[in-house]
Computed example of a mutant assay.
Amino acid sequence: MSRVFGEVAALYDDIRLGYPGELLETLVAYHGGVPAPVADVGAGTGKATELLLELGVPVIAVEPDPRMAAVLAQKFPGVETVTAAFEEWTPPPGGVGLISCATAWHWFDPRTRVQRVRAALQPRGTLAIFHHRHGYADPVQQRTIDAIHQAIDPAQTVDDRPVDWARTDLEHSGLFTDIEVHEWHWHPVFSTEQYLRLLQTFSTFRLRSPAAQRRTVTGLSAAIDGWGGSLRMDIHTVLVVGRAAA
Rank of each mutant, 00 (worst) to 15 (best):
C101E: 00
L175S: 09
L72H: 05
T157W: 00
V240G: 09
V240K: 09
R133G: 01
H172G: 07
G226C: 12
E180P: 00
G174F: 08
H131G: 11
H132P: 00
G33S: 05
P64Q: 08
A119H: 05
H131F: 13
T103C: 10
V62F: 12
H187A: 09
I99Q: 03
M233C: 10
V163K: 12
E171L: 15
I60D: 03
A69N: 07
G33L: 03
H172P: 00
L239H: 10
H236C: 01
D160W: 01
H106N: 03
A39Y: 04
Y12V: 11
T204L: 05
P20C: 00
Y19T: 07
V59Q: 02
G226R: 12
S230L: 07
G94S: 13
P92S: 12
A70S: 14
Q74D: 13
R116P: 13
W227G: 15
V71D: 05
G32H: 05
A211G: 01
T90E: 15
Y30P: 06
E88R: 11
W227I: 13
R67W: 07
C101N: 04
Q142E: 15
D169K: 02
P93N: 12
T103F: 02
P110F: 04
R167H: 11
R143Y: 04
Q74L: 09
Q200A: 13
V38C: 05
T157N: 01
D40W: 04
I235L: 14
E87W: 04
Q150M: 02
D164C: 02
A212E: 15
I179W: 04
H134F: 14
P20V: 01
G94V: 14
V41L: 11
H149S: 05
G42I: 01
D138G: 10
H132A: 02
L55Q: 00
R124C: 12
T112I: 08
D153M: 08
W165C: 10
S100W: 13
H149E: 12
P123Y: 08
A102T: 06
A36V: 07
D138M: 11
E87P: 08
R161N: 06
R243D: 07
L24I: 00
R116H: 07
A36N: 03
T144F: 02
V4C: 02
L220P: 01
R67D: 14
W105P: 11
G21V: 03
P66G: 10
D178C: 00
V8A: 12
S173V: 04
